[in-house]
């Protein structure tokens, strides 16, 4: 286990050391202490390493992540896991605005609540929020799955494309061109897998699925298999 004191050693040194890890590194386990709300912790990683952050972080924690597993023992500021490609980020506390924005892949788990614009423009990432999400979440969401065990705020899924949105609780309002969808066996299977991986205690059957009504973009039914 490599222990890194962020206050003493600085952010640039941390990210340089983490970036220096390759696929076959021996230093697979890292712990970052004294996070104190710092920005850009563990951004741009590309190795199968595990990073534990003690304390809450600022902006963009785990942004652009590939392969790595990042566990934050605290809350995260705006843009956590922004544009992540693969790997896993687990936030024990809450997430601020636009968690998982534009994410292409991987799994982002928020054990508390996520704020506004969660999963905005998501492009393949899976996001599981144990609590509630704020307004304008999944705005223009293109692909991937957003799973919410609690409630969703205003304008869920506004102008969304083909992302799957699953909400167990209440939805304050749906955004433009977002509608309730039928829950089919394939969706139950997706949910079951994600809930297990996110250590979430909920049954897939308790959720309602939402998605695009496909009136706002040039959806062509002949291409349905591609979505």
């Amino acid at each position: 286990m490599q222990i890194f004191d962020l206050e003493k050693q600085g952010l640039r040194a941390l990210n340089e050391q983490l970036h220096a890890q390759s696929t076959d590194t021996n230093q697979t386990s890292w712990e970052v202490i004294n996070a104190k709300g710092s920005h850009s912790i563990a951004v741009g990683l590309d190795a199968p390493i595990a990073v534990t952050v003690k304390g809450s972080t600022g902006y963009y924690c785990g942004g652009m992540n590939k392969q790595a597993t990042i566990n934050v023992h605290g809350s995260v500021g705006p843009g956590a896991g922004e544009n992540m490609m693969s790997g896993t980020i687990i936030v024990d506390g809450d997430a601020s605005q636009y968690a998982g924005a534009t994410g292409h892949g991987g799994l982002l788990v928020v054990k508390g609540n996520a704020s506004s614009r969660c999963g905005i423009s998501m492009k393949g990432i899976d996001i599981v929020v144990h609590g509630n999400i704020g307004h304008m979440s999944a705005f223009m969401a293109q692909s991937g799955n957003l799973v919410v065990l609690g409630d969703a705020g205003d304008a869920l899924g506004d102008s969304c494309y083909e992302a799957h949105l699953f909400v167990r609780g209440k939805v304050k309002s749906l955004g433009a061109d977002c509608e309730q969808k039928e829950m089919r066996a394939e969706h139950i299977a997706i949910l079951k897998d994600l809930l297990e991986r996110a250590d979430a205690n909920a049954k897939p059957e308790e959720f309602t699925r939402y998605g695009s009504a496909r009136n706002l973009y040039n959806f062509d039914v002949d291409n349905a298999a591609a979505y």
Binding site: G37, T57, G77, D94, G134, H135
Partner: peptide, 21 residues
């Protein structure tokens, strides 16, 4: 930002939240 609050007394046990819109 949360950074502004990190040195307040007993912040570890504070209720921390984002004000609603």
């Amino acid at each position: 930002e949360y950074r502004a609050l990190v040195n307040l007394p007993n912040i570890e046990n504070a209720r921390v939240w984002e004000p609603e819109p």
